[in-house]
C-alpha cells in the first residue's frame, strides 16, 4: 500500500499517450478560430477593408453557384421540351390577347409622353429622366432567415451599380446592395434594413415604408393615428429619391391598427410584387441626371443597418432622403 500511495503523483502532469495525438487541443483551436471570426465580424461591420477580400472570394464561389443552378436549369428545359401542344396553343392565344390589350394602352402612353415632354418644355422644366432596364435571373437565395436577400446573375461586368431598383412585372421587389463581377446581391423590400419613399396613390400622401423583416410585410411607421389611409390603399414609389422611378407599385394596405396609448398608427402593407416567387427580375438603372450630379452620394437605402454591411461610400451631406429615420432606438445605440 505504501508503494502505491505516491503513484498518482508520479504520473502527473498527465500527458496523452502518443497514439491519441490529434494535434492541438480542441479548445485551443476553438479559441483561435473564434477569435479570428470575431475579428472578421468586427472588421466587416465597421471598416471597408474586407470588401476586396469578399470580392475576390465571391468570384471563386460564383462558378459553384452556377453549378448549383444547372440541375434546375435542366429540369426546366426538359419540362419545357415536353410541354404539350394544347398548353402552348392556349398560352399563345392568351399572350396574343395580352399583347393586343397592351398595345392599345401603349398607344395612349406614347401620346401622353409626347404631351408631357411638350408641357415640360413649355414650363422650362428638366426632361424626365430615362431609365434603362436589364433582365436578370435569380441564381440563389440566401439561407439566412433574418435577411431577405437574393443573388442575381448580373454584376459589375454588366454595368450594375449599387442602389439600382429591382422590379418584376407587378412592382418593386428590392434594391441592389452589393455588386460582384458576375453577380449582385439584392435586398428585398421586406428586409428590415430597406426603406422606400412611397406615396399613397389615392391622395398622394408621402411616407416611408420599412420592411418588416419577419412576415413578408411592410410597415408604415411615423404616421399619426388620424392619418387618411384606408384598407386597400395602394402604395407607389414617389420618385423623389431619384432612384426608383415614380409610380411603381409597392404594396397594398392590409390592416390599420390604432392604439389609444400610441400617437402613431400601426399600418401593415402587403407587397404587390411576388417578392419571393420569381426567377426573372428587371434591374432598373439609376436616372442619368442623378448619376452625373452625385454619383458618390448614392447609397442603398439599406445602409441604415450599418452593422450588417461595410460602408461603401463616404457619408455625404445630401443624405436627407437616403437615410430617413432610424427605426429603432436599439439600432441607434449600436451605431
Amino acid at each position: 500500500m505504501g508503494l502505491m500511495k505516491g503513484v498518482h503523483k508520479k504520473l502527473e502532469p498527465q500527458q496523452s499517450p502518443t497514439f491519441f495525438v490529434r494535434g492541438a487541443r480542441p479548445f485551443a483551436r476553438l479559441v483561435f478560430f473564434a477569435a479570428l471570426s470575431l475579428a472578421f465580424m468586427a472588421v466587416d461591420s465597421r471598416f471597408n477593408y474586407l470588401a476586396k477580400v469578399r470580392l475576390g472570394l465571391v468570384t471563386v464561389v460564383h462558378p459553384l453557384e452556377v453549378l448549383a443552378n444547372t440541375p434546375s436549369e435542366w429540369y426546366r428545359s426538359i419540362s419545357a421540351y415536353f410541354s404539350t401542344h394544347n398548353t402552348l396553343l392556349r398560352e399563345n392565344t392568351a399572350l396574343k390577347t395580352l399583347t393586343f390589350e397592351q398595345s392599345v394602352t401603349l398607344q395612349k402612353l406614347n401620346l401622353i409622353e409626347a404631351e408631357n415632354t411638350h408641357l415640360r418644355s413649355l414650363l422650362n422644366a428638366n426632361p424626365a429622366p430615362k431609365q434603362q432596364a436589364i433582365l436578370g435571373e435569380i441564381i440563389h437565395m440566401g439561407r439566412d432567415p433574418f435577411t431577405h436577400k437574393i443573388v442575381v446573375n448580373r454584376g459589375s461586368s454588366h454595368s450594375i451599380i449599387t442602389g439600382q431598383a429591382v422590379v418584376d412585372a407587378a412592382g418593386v421587389i428590392g434594391q441592389v446592395t452589393r455588386v460582384y463581377p458576375f453577380s449582385s446581391e439584392v435586398t428585398l423590400i421586406i428586409d428590415k434594413g430597406l426603406s422606400i419613399p412611397i406615396q399613397i396613390e389615392r391622395n398622394n400622401l408621402r411616407a416611408i415604408a420599412f420592411g418588416q423583416g419577419r412576415d413578408s410585410t411592410l410597415d408604415l411607421p411615423y404616421l399619426p393615428a388620424n392619418v387618411d389611409i384606408i384598407k386597400g390603399d395602394k402604395l407607389v414609389t414617389s420618385g423623389i429619391d431619384g432612384i426608383y422611378p415614380a409610380g411603381l407599385a409597392i404594396a397594398t394596405v392590409l390592416k390599420i391598427e390604432r392604439y389609444p396609448d400610441s400617437p402613431f398608427a400601426h399600418i401593415v402593407c402587403l407587397p404587390t410584387a411576388g417578392v419571393n416567387n420569381h426567377r426573372q427580375v428587371m434591374l432598373l438603372s439609376i436616372p442619368t441626371e442623378v448619376v452625373n450630379s452625385s454619383l458618390s452620394s448614392i447609397k442603398p437605402l439599406a445602409e441604415k443597418n450599418v452593422l450588417e454591411k461595410p460602408a461603401q461610400t463616404p457619408i455625404n451631406s445630401d443624405q436627407t432622403i437616403q437615410k430617413p429615420i432610424t427605426k429603432k432606438s436599439s439600432n441607434a445605440i449600436l451605431h
Binding site: L38, F40, M41, L64, E65, G142, T147, V151, E185
Partner: peptide, 9 residues
C-alpha cells in the same frame, strides 16, 4: 460569402 451576411458568423 454565399449568404452575403456578416463575414464570420
Amino acid at each position: 460569402l454565399a449568404t452575403g451576411g456578416l463575414f464570420g458568423q
